[in-house]
Design a protein around this nucleic acid. Structure first.
Length: 439
RNA sequence: CGGAGUGUGGCUCAGUCUGGUAGAGCACCGCGUUCGGGACGCGGGGGUCGCAGGUUCGAAUCCUGCCACUCCGACCA
């Protein structure tokens, strides 16, 4: 992409309403525009990151045997009356009436609808296990939206739902999602720690929150720091073997959010030098809730003995839009964002120090073509801004590499290559710079 | 939902107390000089001061109501 043809409205000054780092940087880097409290338009740069996060989540869901669907944002109130949650959910649910006075709601989650879809088609235990997921916008009418996309009212969530014939198999399904989450967050360059969690309004008795450690996290967390060194299963993980060992490894050491923190247990189960008190951002949560929905909604299948039984269910959420904020909270410096390569909106920024100079233009085009064909998604700053502004913008938007091309260097046959994460700069030939980026 | 605030050009803000016909910096447009870490000069465009009533000869400024947004707390992906 060439900046001259792009839409990247960066702000030099800090918007007054943005209090936390990720919100401020998203607004300044031209990723996001607030349209109402907790409701945002995603501008091109932000959308690119959102899509990359979404795609990593999708790939890991698919790998773990989940199947993607897409349910609507609007749901009928009657469906929620079946589970009893239409009245229970309260003011956080946005309720809508259509022209025929039918009661609708903008979905805050999809347990009811997925259960309705499941029960319409699946009649036998022989069709199980099943895990269906979608990545769709949700709306929760938060009393107090804040922190940008970290706590918006409208947000993009991946929610998966597992269906099994009995509790043991349901727990195996739970374990698959647990491992998929470890992998997805790792791939994004995040260190996410699973912590035992309260189950909240969704219900059930087995649940973990996946927490990203960041200084500006919304809640305090207490953990055994050895959690941070546990290995994440690699690409060769086989989801259809027993994963309980992996889950056990990740759930044995003490790790708890302040809501469920037990100081006495913490002291009993950890030694002082391993205790880590930090702040964290919840980016995912897994639940097992048995027949909480399948029973009232009559989602039953025939078992091996011919008797109908309510299926055992779990649900598994990832806050996709929130993750974009969490990524920034976890990785930035005073100058701006530092994207992990896997989610960076562009792979490399090419800075032309002198657009219009024939040699500079030619070198920029060479670099642009080479990086494009290598799949590195370059963003070429071909504007006639002053160099200082270009450097500041590139640092702000946080692309992993900056390739700086100017007449002074080219006269000596060199360009400058900067790695955003470390600030390390090298002066080298264009060919060597391209080779370093392509790797 | 309790408490505290704020709405003035695209952004950050001054002006409001003490009413007199709207300002600064940045951004934007034109010309020129510049150009390796957010340039400079000259000229220029852009605002029914959140909305609606009221008081007044006169309202950004005073009064009433409403709306929006932000922050602290309680609650949530």
């Amino acid at each position: 992409m060439r900046l001259s043809r792009y839409f990247l409205p960066v702000l030099k000054q800090n918007p007054a309403e943005a209090q936390i780092t990720s919100h401020r940087l998203m607004l300044r880097a031209g990723m996001l525009r607030q349209e109402a409290a907790g409701i945002y338009a995603w501008l091109p740069l932000g959308l690119r990151v959102l899509k990359k996060v979404e795609q990593i989540v999708r790939e890991e869901m698919d790998r773990a045997g989940a199947v993607e669907v897409l349910m609507p944002t609007l749901q009928l109130a009657d469906l929620w009356r079946e589970s009893g949650r239409y009245d229970d959910y309260g003011a956080e649910m946005l309720r809508i009436t259509d022209r025929h006075d039918r009661e609708l709601l903008y979905g805050p989650t999809n347990e009811e609808m997925i259960t309705e879809i499941f029960r319409a088609y699946v009649k036998s235990y022989r069709e199980l296990p099943k895990n269906l997921y979608h990545i769709q916008w949700k709306f929760r009418d938060e009393q107090r939206p804040r922190f940008g996309v970290m706590r918006g009212r409208e947000f993009l969530m991946k929610d998966a739902y597992s269906f099994d014939i009995d509790e043991d198999r349901a727990k195996a399904a739970y374990n698959r999602m647990f491992v998929a989450y470890l992998r997805a967050f790792k791939r994004m360059g995040l260190q996410a720690v699973p912590m035992r969690a309260e189950t909240g309004p969704i219900g059930g008795d087995l649940s973990h929150e996946f927490i990203v450690l960041a200084q500006t996290g919304e809640s305090a967390v207490f953990l055994d720091r050895r959690m941070l060194d546990l290995p994440v299963p690699g690409d060769d993980v086989d989801y259809f073997t027993d994963l309980s060992g992996v889950v056990a490894d990740w759930t044995t050491l003490y790790a708890a959010t302040e809501d469920v923190h037990d100081a006495a247990r913490y002291e009993a189960e950890t030694v002082p030098e391993d205790r880590l008190t930090a702040r964290g951002i919840e980016v995912g949560q897994t639940f097992f809730f048995g027949d909480k929905y399948s029973k009232p909604m009559k989602a039953t299948v025939s078992g091996p003995d011919g008797v109908d039984v309510a299926v055992q269910m779990g649900s598994y959420g990832v806050g996709v839009s929130r993750l974009v904020g969490a990524l920034i909270e976890a990785s930035h410096d005073d100058a701006g964002i530092i994207w992990p390569e896997a989610v960076a909106p562009f792979g490399v920024g090419i800075i032309s120090l002198r657009p219009g100079d024939a040699a500079v233009d030619a070198a920029c085009e060479t670099a642009y073509a080479a990086l494009t064909s290598a799949g590195k998604e370059p963003l070429l700053d071909d504007s006639d801004d002053r160099p200082g502004g270009k450097f500041a913008t590139m640092d702000l938007v946080g692309l992993p590499w900056q390739l700086i091309i100017g007449p002074r260097g080219l006269a000596g046959g060199t360009v400058e290559l900067k790695r955003r994460a470390t600030g390390e700069r090298q002066t080298l030939s264009l060919d060597d710079a391209l080779a370093a980026i392509v790797g």
